[in-house]
Computed example of a mutant assay.
Amino acid sequence: MRYDKGHKDETRRHILDVASAQFRESGIAAVGLAGIMSEAGLTNGAFYSHFASKEDLVREVLTDALTRREERHKANLENGVALETTIRDYLSTRHRDRAGTGCPTAALVAEIARHPKATRDAFTGKVSDILTLVAEQIRQGSADDRRRKAITIYATMVGALQLSRAVNDKPLSDEILENAVEAAVAMANEQ
């Protein structure tokens, strides 16, 4: 059977999207290739015409999802969106409650620490790019000061989002988000 031009790229994109949502929602270790391919409407054998292994898929998902997040940060920077707006959006209850479409760092960082060097290298490069963009949104201080603040702000955001998702007490979860917003915004506005 012959497929239209671009079919393979579309299929690969579809597998990436399905895997990305499943990984973020359930965790990398909990998601099998059979479940990904079933949800994608494809056979297990089709997987290997797009990816060499599950680890290859994990790297591609991370790179893709973090590139998309990086593009949002770039757009915010280009459009003059304040860092405070980015922080408030990231630490929102909407983001907390939608792990499957949210930040891959907050959803997967603990698992990524146990993955092979190539996967961690891909993750490290993308996180570094995001930190650079956050630093560019900080208006005060030397380049080193802005970088230090960007790391602190991003770590606060990621950690608070993870913690807010982990607790089973909604008022406490909301309180974690609210306090993290205050701390991150204060750091961003610190002179």
Results as ranks from 00 to 15, higher is better:
Ile36Leu: 14
Thr105Ile: 15
Leu16Pro: 01
Ala150Cys: 10
Met1Trp: 06
Glu10Gly: 14
Lys117Val: 15
Leu161Arg: 12
Glu111Pro: 02
Asp17Asn: 12
Arg88Asp: 01
Ile138Lys: 01
Leu177Ser: 03
Leu161Glu: 04
Ala19Lys: 09
Lys54Gly: 03
Ala40Glu: 02
Glu39Cys: 05
Thr11Arg: 07
Gly6Asn: 10
Met37Ser: 12
Gln140Leu: 08
Met157Leu: 13
Lys170Ala: 05
Ile28Pro: 02
Ala30Ile: 03
Gly27Ala: 06
Arg114Leu: 08
Asp97Met: 12
Gly159Ala: 09
Ala82Leu: 15
Arg13Val: 10
Ser142Arg: 10
Tyr154Ser: 07
Leu16Asp: 03
Gly80Met: 10
Val31Met: 13
Leu33Ile: 11
Ile15Cys: 02
Glu178Arg: 14
Glu84Phe: 06
Thr124Lys: 03
Arg69Leu: 11
Leu133Trp: 03
Arg12Tyr: 11
Gly32Asp: 13
Ser38Pro: 00
Glu60Leu: 09
Leu83Arg: 05
Ala183Thr: 00
Phe51His: 07
Ser128Cys: 02
Gln22Thr: 00
Ala107Tyr: 07
Arg13Lys: 13
Ser128Arg: 05
Leu57Trp: 12
Ala21Glu: 15
Ala110Tyr: 11
Glu190Thr: 11
Asn179Cys: 04
Ala160Tyr: 14
Ala113Arg: 14
Val61Gly: 02
Thr63Gln: 07
Val127Ser: 01
Cys103Lys: 08
Ala122Leu: 08
Ser49Trp: 12
Lys126Tyr: 05
Val158Gly: 03
Gly45Ile: 07
Arg148Ser: 14
Thr11Ser: 01
Lys74Pro: 00
Lys117Ser: 06
Lys74Gln: 10
Glu182Cys: 04
Pro171Arg: 15
Arg69Cys: 00
Arg2Ile: 13
Met37Gly: 05
Gly102Trp: 15
Thr124Pro: 00
Thr85Asn: 04
Thr119Asn: 00
Asn179Trp: 06
Ala52Pro: 01
Ala166Ser: 14
Glu70His: 13
Thr152Asp: 11
Val18Thr: 14
Asp56His: 15
Ala150Thr: 07
Lys117Arg: 06
Leu108Trp: 14
His7Arg: 14
Ser128Trp: 05
Ser38Gln: 11
Asp169Val: 11
Ala122Phe: 12
Glu178Lys: 12
